[in-house]
Simulated assay, not measured.
Amino acid sequence: MAACKILVIGSINMDLVLRVPYIPQVGETLLGSSVQRIPGGKGANQAVTAAKLGADVYMLGKVGGDEFGDPLIDNLNQAGVHTDHIDLVSEASSGLAVIQVNDEGDNSIVVLAGANDLCNKDYILAHEDLVKDTDIVILQMEIPYEAVYKAVELASKHNKTVILNPAPAPDSIPDDVLGKLDYLIPNETELQKLSGQPVDSIAAAEEAAKILLSKGVSNLIVTLGSNGSLYVSANGAVHVPARTVKAVDTTAAGDSFVAAFAVGLSEGKSVEAAIGFATKVSSIVVTKSGAQTSIPDRSEVDALV
């Protein structure tokens, strides 16, 4: 039984996943080997991960009235996510992501926002009671920034644990928003953009993280791919190594890490234990293809030594 409620606010997409031998260059035509339609979107990926790991998960987001809208909501329901507050906007298209995955498991992604762009601050304000009734709020940056920042404001107002995954990273985040975050979880590229500093080593990541801590962030966890993750707070820095696995597709690795970390916190784990749990989950995700199709259930994670 989950210890508390988790609310995920964010994007819901349909992913078109193209398998390619390598990522093509500008002007190059390349023959792919397959295409799949897989539910995705950073918000939905995180909600599905948390639900499959056993959490009590609610979601705020929007889908379109096209061929993808109902299947996207049905998919969330099947994973155990509460979808009563998700809007289906008949005149809009659903969010769409075109993902190229190469033979090494690396990817490149183009996202069309669709209905996600309609998740404005008025939509967030209309669901303040849901924010008030939850314990942990998870956010990303694939819906309008005004909605993200309003959600952070409401969650902080009601003393909720606020986790922001700044992906895709904006040029900057207002200091008053950073000061309301309990956890900021970027990857190397996002940390570099937000800090304005190169992040090409673990030591450099720590220095870049300290810049954001000086702006008010309480805790920062930077995911470093095969180098694991780095937890930085006022008490210092802790490096958590990655598990060694054969990567097939890195799609949703970061999303699963963020959600699993939140689930760990919801179960009373320490920050470092929650990071370790998240590391296990994301290490499973990269060994499988697709976004939500790669997310393990709790029994698979618990069985991993």
Score class of each variant (00 low, 15 high):
residue 86 I to P: 10
residue 118 L to G: 03
residue 146 E to R: 05
residue 161 T to H: 07
residue 161 T to W: 02
residue 115 A to G: 11
residue 127 H to L: 03
residue 110 V to N: 05
residue 130 L to V: 07
residue 141 M to D: 00
residue 141 M to P: 09
residue 120 N to I: 15
residue 164 L to W: 05
residue 166 P to T: 08
residue 121 K to G: 03
residue 158 H to M: 07
residue 112 L to D: 13
residue 108 S to Y: 07
residue 154 L to G: 07
residue 154 L to W: 01
residue 150 K to W: 00
residue 164 L to H: 03
residue 157 K to A: 08
residue 88 L to Y: 09
residue 121 K to Y: 10
residue 114 G to W: 01
residue 156 S to N: 09
residue 155 A to R: 08
residue 75 N to V: 02
residue 105 G to D: 08
residue 156 S to Q: 04
residue 128 E to P: 14
residue 133 D to E: 12
residue 107 N to L: 12
residue 135 D to K: 08
residue 138 I to F: 01
residue 95 G to L: 11
residue 147 A to W: 08
residue 159 N to F: 09
residue 159 N to C: 09
residue 82 H to Y: 10
residue 86 I to Q: 03
residue 119 C to T: 15
residue 128 E to L: 03
residue 107 N to E: 02
residue 87 D to P: 04
residue 150 K to C: 07
residue 107 N to F: 06
residue 123 Y to T: 00
residue 87 D to K: 11
residue 102 N to H: 06
residue 75 N to M: 09
residue 147 A to R: 01
residue 138 I to G: 01
residue 79 A to Y: 01
residue 101 V to Y: 06
residue 140 Q to N: 04
residue 85 H to Y: 14
residue 128 E to I: 12
residue 77 N to P: 01
residue 92 A to D: 11
residue 153 E to V: 11
residue 109 I to D: 12
residue 122 D to P: 06
residue 169 A to P: 02
residue 92 A to N: 11
residue 101 V to F: 01
residue 111 V to G: 03
residue 145 Y to S: 10
residue 167 A to P: 03
residue 146 E to P: 04
residue 156 S to G: 05
residue 108 S to N: 14
residue 131 V to L: 13
residue 158 H to A: 07
residue 150 K to N: 06
residue 151 A to K: 00
residue 125 L to P: 06
residue 86 I to C: 03
residue 106 D to F: 12
residue 112 L to H: 13
